[in-house]
Every structure is written in C-alpha cells, then in structure tokens.
Design a protein around this nucleic acid. Sequence first.
RNA 1: GCCGACGUAGCUCAGCUGGUUUAGAGCGGCGGAUUCAUAACCCGCAGGUCGGUGGUUCGAGUCCACCCGUCGGCACCA
Length: 537
Amino acid sequence: MSDPAISPDRFYVTTPIYYVNDRPHVGHCYSTLLADTVARFMRASGRDVFFLTGTDEHSERVASRAAEEGMTPIQWADRNAGLFKEAFAKLGFTNDDFIRTTESRHKDLVTRYVRTLLEQGDVYLGEYSGWWDHSQEEYLTETMAREHGFKSPVTGKDLVKRTEKNYFFRLARYQDRLLRHINENPGFIRPEARKNEVLGRLRDGLQDVPVSRGGAGDGGAAAWGIRMPGDEGHSIYVWIDALFNYLSVVDTRERRAYWPADVHLIAKDILWFHAVIWPCLLMALGEELPKCVYAHSFWIREGRKMSKSLGNFIDMETIDAYCDRYGTDALRWYLLTQGPMGATDADFSYAKFVEVYNADLANGIGNAASRVINMIHKYFDGKCPSAPSDSDDNARPLPGRARDAAFRVSACMGENDIGGALSAALGLSNAVDVFINDTTPFKLAKDPANMERVGHILYDCVESIRIAAVLLSCALPEKMGALLGMMGQPVPMDDGSFEEPLDKLCEWGRLKAGDAVTKGEGLFPRADGADPEPGSR
RNA sequence: GCCGACGUAGCUCAGCUGGUUUAGAGCGGCGGAUUCAUAACCCGCAGGUCGGUGGUUCGAGUCCACCCGUCGGCACCA
C-alpha cells in the first residue's frame, strides 16, 4: 500500500498519563485501547512504533491521600500504579513503556527542561494571587470562586484570598506562533470541534501561567513534587511535570528519533494543556511539536456522566466480567466501534453491546468465516481449493473488494479514523456473505460436474476472509489470530506485528491450493441479551 | 455571566462551502427468499413537519435572528 497518509519509519503514540489517585476504569482503558489499536496497526504495517502510557504521580493530593491511608506517598503511588499496569496487561495492551513521573529518568529531565526555560527567561519569578480552598488544597479562579459565593465548592468552607510567589511560564509570548501553527496544520488539533474550542479561547488571549508551587521546603504536600531548580522552596507544578513525560521518555540516545510524537491521544477535559500549554513549552525548548493532539469525548452511563458521587463508573470488575463472558476482543470491538471518538459523548450500554456484538462479530465475521470454512470441509475435505485463473474479473468481485478494503483501512488508520478502518475491514467479510448468496456454491455442489466452479468460488471467499482477518487483527488480535491459525496462516505476534508487513499479507493469492483449513470453535458465539449484564449483581 | 457545540427515521448517527433527487446509512422492527453457516446470511419494506418561530433567497436540515431543550469549556483537581 503506497498510501501517502502513512509515512514510513517511526511512529510514536501516547496516552495521557493517568492520575495515580484514580482507580482504573473504562475511560482509562478506552484511551489506552485506542492507542493500542493504532500501535498494533502501525507495527503490522512495518513501522517502528513506540507506544507510551503511564501514571502521573506528583499531585499534592497524592501525598495527602497517602497520608490518609497511612502510607508514604511512594507506597501509595506504587500500589495504584500497579493497578493500572495490571489492568492494561490484562487487556493485552502493547505499550512499549510505562512511565511513572516519580521515576528519576523523568524527574532528572524535567529539572533540566525547567532549568533551560529559567535560563532563557521563559520562566520567571512572579506573584500569584487567587482564591485558595484550603480543604482541597487548590486555587479557584475568580469566576469559579464568585460562582460558589467564595466558599469551597466541595466542602463549603470559606475561601481565602492568598498571594504567593510563583514561577511563571511566558505562555503569552508564544500565542502568535501557536495560532499560526494551528491554522497552518489543520490536523494538529482533532476533532474539528475541539480545534474550534481552542481557537475560540485563544481569541481572548493568553496569560502567563504559574508553573510552580510554593511550600515545598516546609515538608508539606508540595514537597512531594519535583523541586524547582535553584529554589528548594518551590516544586514544579504537577501539570507541567506531567506534560513533559511525552518528551522525557524518548529523550534518550536510543529513542530520540521517535520525537515528535505522531499523536497524543487524550480526552477532551485535558485539551487545553495538550493543545496550548504543551506546544508552547515545546516551542520554548526549541522542540518540534507533536503532529496531532486527538481529544476524544467521554463514556457516559445511562445518559449521565460517570462520577464518584453517582458511583456509576464502569470499573475493572465490570470490564473483567465482560471479557470473561464474551472475550477481550468483544469488549475491544464494542469500545472501538461505539466509543466517543468524535465530539460527543457515548453511552455505555449492555443492550448496545449485545446488539453490536451479534451484528458485527457473531453474525458478521464469525458467521462468514464459519460458513466458508465449513463448505471447504464439506466439499473439499478441508483442503483449500485451487484459485480460478485470473480471467473474467467481472464475475469475481472479491479480489477488488479486498484490495479496496486494505487501502481504505490503511488510509483511515493514517487519520486516526479507527471506526472507519474497522467498518471497511468488516465490509470485506460482508462482501463474502453477499458473494456466497449470489453464487450459491452450496447449490452447485449438488452436481459433481460443478466442483471446479465451487472451488473457485470458495477460494475467493476464504482468501477474502484471510485478508479481512489480517485487517481486523489490530482490533481483534486474539480471535483473528485464531482464525488465521485455522487457515494455517501466520498469526500476529504479541505486539500486533506479523513476520511480514501488512501490504504483503494483503496481497491476493497467498493461500495455496491444498493448504489445510481446519474447523475451529465458533469464534464469537451468539450473545443472548436476556442474560443479565456481566458484573451486575 | 462569557465562549462554543448539539437537537435529522424506535436507537446511534451521515448530510462540506444552500438547488443529484420523492432527506440517507447502520442497528432494531416487519415481510420475502434460502439452507453452506452461529434461528445466522441474502433481498425488500419501513414514510422522519430534518427542535420551534420568523426571515434572506427563484430555491434552506444546509444562511440570518429570536426562542425552547441538552451538553461542554472558561486555564493551577487531575
């Protein structure tokens, strides 16, 4: 595939690093799954992929929460970071690294970056004044404070006006350059609606932003963060610390070439930091900017936002229950095809899950594979029949469909359009269904004189299924691996790549007459929506 | 309060700079055909005042105004 959207060589994809006070839930899994799917696809395409995820650990609240739990901050962080690692491993994610911001490889570089900014005058000591919510250890903006009657929105306690010395980053200095970059690179902030949001706010102008917190010297919660270079009394504000992870992890001799990132996958709530502050920090450091910041929306539950107070998170228990009953791939498929990749939130619903599972997987690729393999068994003793000679193409729609599908999948993936890619791939298996109905090999097979023709038909079918399986493997690694195995074909390795690049594998005609095709278990047994939702009690 | 998004068939959504149609797709539903297959597949149908009102225009889901409804962001919680 010589698709221009996909340049060769390296590919670097990141997820947010997750707040280590959280417990992993569907939101974290979704962001990481998107990255995993893209990473698998790019590896299969032959690119040198680096896929990064991790945890953000220097929030002052981590320190205070740890104290509540009777642990040291690092003990608490260790435990929770472990939960994320465990969750992601269970889902088979193929991240190449997992950064924790408390690791020295990160901290050392953050210190270096900030020192550089200080020396250049991009960071300076100034004064910050705002409404301090002591109970939450955070400042509120003037508007927020007024809205809540100058009381803590959480605890209702009085806010106090507080002024402190702070280090600021000269964000305003980079406003024009950022604006130009956004306008000259339409794909920089995606989707479109998010870009417009940023442009709208940019019209109001940028102010310099604080990048430090005081009180680091007195052993308080701020002491947990990375110290401000040359000023032990301040620690680097956790957001700044966190953003640098994308660079720090690859800022090594071996990994430097991965930068700039091809895509930062994030959720919409952290758009501002990634689409404005982060690029400006990079500009100040003279670094190239990431090619794309892609902000997806949220999973919601029965029309309502998932929140602690409602206790309606899709937690790991529920996710595990879905995986146990339907397979990890089934959950991956649901999240990938029904998820909030666009500007609007998506509802997580069991009914929808069953619908999509049955329509796409059980009745779709699963059934198509089953009927083709079954006929090969029935009529050709489980041996791949021989391919038709390549004359009359108009009677053979599938080779063209396969080529088309491969092209479209790769074009879509190049634009982070995972949904489009998967529907193009699934379309190939649907085309097989139509072809079988049109050509009726099962009828022809009743007359032995037709067997050559039947073989030709089934060859096109099984070859198309093979290619569909290859194309779907980034989303359904386990099941498509099993399917390819049934056809005696190479299966994807643990990281999603194959021994040969995708474009080779998608060439028509790799299956040869006589290759054994084995019947396996049904890939996706039909789901019964009458069963109770997995994980419900 | 400020900025913005959205409101199109039962559900989820496409419809870019206004005139390719009697407004589309997928899923669900209904009918038909078929039997290789996981009661699957294939074919056909389903008639939604395109949130409301008023405008601009020869002509508007597609532009403007206002209204109603839902939602998001507003920079030190990540």
